[in-house]
Design a protein around this nucleic acid. Structure first.
Lengths: 135, 135
DNA sequence: ATACATGCAAACATTTTGCTTTGGC
DNA sequence: GCCAAAGCAAAATGTTTGCATGTAT
């Protein structure tokens, strides 16, 4: 919330709710997940949530993930935190991986070579989870 | 085409075209890219291309990528070939990276620990390309 | 001959925008 | 009071399906 205020956003009920939901999520969430969440006490409209997510993303307070689902996923962007994910192609289950990401040094190298600014990366593993393999 | 035939697909004009387009692409392509391509001599319908892509994906002849765009991207899945991408968040430019992917050994480790089958990964770098940074 | 592939149109899901009203500062 | 944010509804975008017809095998 502090950071959101500093970024020039007004302190509204909807914003507080959206941030709270993202903070307590242990998974990436879709727009629908958030807009229909019970924790969205204010009952904010989907369009409102959408516009908040856009603003938060522009200001780099959250990050959008392109998992293979049809819809986009959002996660809090905490400085110094980075997660990779393991996703089941059959049931769609998303698991946060607790690993040391091996891409960090490569990322610096690419930043230098390509001249890209604000570089970050996304790493996901896809496959078939044991449950789905059994079924 | 050989592999497609072996996988039980009929040799049709539309299939030949779609495969040819994917083979000659040096970038991931969307359904729209393919369905509207000049190389699609047969003028196949978008629905037809869509169904072909589904079949090719099921048979692992192509792979679907979830880049940050709204639409899915498809690439040929050549055994032993793997590419990572560098994408500009502003103009959407997609560049194939010519790097040794550092995730291979990690992937084996995750396969073992998680019990996932058919594991593969997707690694993308996002940022702002020099052109967009100047503008 | 038969089963699979196609075309066209329509249904869906999700994202995005327009416009008026509300509320933070 | 002013401008950003919210609410509601509608447009836009991209994906997916139904069904009648055509075609590879």
């Amino acid at each position: 919330m502090l950071r959101a205020r500093e970024a020039g956003l007004r302190r509204t009920r909807a914003l507080e709710d959206v941030l709270s939901i993202l903070i307590h999520a242990c998974q990436p969430l879709t727009l629908a997940d958030i807009a229909e969440s019970d924790r969205l006490r204010s009952g904010a409209d989907k369009a409102t949530v959408y516009r908040l997510l856009m603003k938060l993303e522009e200001r780099s307070l959250i990050r959008r993930l392109g998992l293979h689902d049809r819809s986009a996923y959002y996660i809090l962007n905490l400085p110094g935190e980075h997660h990779d994910y393991l996703i089941c192609n059959d049931c769609g289950r998303i698991e946060k991986l607790d690993i040391t990401c091996p891409v960090q040094s490569l990322e610096k190298q690419i930043a230098k070579k390509s001249g890209f600014k604000k570089l970050y990366h996304e790493l996901e593993f896809f496959g078939q989870c044991p449950d789905c393999a059994d079924a």
